[in-house]
Design a protein around this nucleic acid. Sequence first.
DNA 1: GTCTATAGGCTGATAGAC
DNA 2: GTCTATCAGCCTATAGAC
Lengths: 208, 208
Amino acid sequence: MGISERKERQKTELRQQILEASQTIVVQDGFAALTMRKIAEAIEYAPATIYLYFENRDEIAKQICIHGYQELLDYLHPVAAISDPRDRLLAIAEAYIRFGMNHAETYRLIFMADPKFTNAILKDAPIDDSGGPGSPAFHVLIKLLDDLKAQDQLAANADSLHFAQVLWTALHGIVSLKLTCSGFLTASAEGLGTTMTHTFLAGLPKNS
Amino acid sequence: MGISERKERQKTELRQQILEASQTIVVQDGFAALTMRKIAEAIEYAPATIYLYFENRDEIAKQICIHGYQELLDYLHPVAAISDPRDRLLAIAEAYIRFGMNHAETYRLIFMADPKFTNAILKDAPIDDSGGPGSPAFHVLIKLLDDLKAQDQLAANADSLHFAQVLWTALHGIVSLKLTCSGFLTASAEGLGTTMTHTFLAGLPKNS
DNA sequence: GTCTATAGGCTGATAGAC
DNA sequence: GTCTATCAGCCTATAGAC
């Protein structure tokens, strides 16, 4: 079995190489710049060879999305463990925004481009509060709202799912607008995030 | 002068026809589908003719952006006149979201695509609180925050510009995420908008 | 397994005839 | 002023040689 195992290993190695080259292209020049010819040039193979490892360009894009989503989870995982839900909210917002700004083109690909890639990641992850197999990243938000509720920071009869969605859109708005119109959002993404979370918790600051 | 005036008029008429055909294409099939050939087919002229009226494709796109931005102003103008700033906030949010959902592809082009188009609209409109020639749409938000401040809904020492940006990103987040991942935002855009504005004003709802 | 060569399509933009 | 014809380039994907 040694020979077929080696072949298998070599196969996955080139597959991995294709993915890494593709990710580099996306990160540097955006998704539109991801072409089979460029990938082929980067890995020093002929374009046709790529089709032995991936069905088409979309399959490569999908894999990059899945990988990027994993990276987002890596950003969220440490802060999701913070016990105080108020602190956790601030940390989650900071981490989400930091991911978006550090991985701009990946964020674009996952959350701002063709929904078919987003769907590829989330399609087995319907957003609900079932605690089931749904999108792990979104469950971090739902759990956050549930824990805020347990501390009377959110009304007991409020819909955690709904408020989690409001929070997600708010954070997404900061990242996406900053990525598209940074010249006209004079505030930093981090500053907007901090204000957003405080306002989310307590509303607009009042005269004291 | 009658002849040259007629010629001038005919020139602007075809120009207008090109723009209208282009807008139809963008609205129906998105910006990526806007090609010179398709425009030519729609107006029943040869592709080369378009270049007598517009320098290139980008100039056409820019004009569509400017027109779309005007439409956004048309949505905002009536509600910007509401005197009570709390009511006005709700109405502005509703109008902004309604514009985004009703003109999805235009919204994409202006706020979710290449920044160069966004810049074309806003470049003479630096976001500040000077009341100068800046972006009219954004001044609606700044004035709103100022008026909330005058009613003690916002602390006197708070930065209206900053909170206006937070509000903008929040509204943009709802529209843009709904346009990209509507399958995973189970709440309606309107519902998210209502919750967002209430939370913006008063924070998460508490047990009463 | 990898290559070359190419089919078959698209694009923006332009030169030059009429 | 408008056309035809075309340049020069891009793309995905595949057939068939090696």
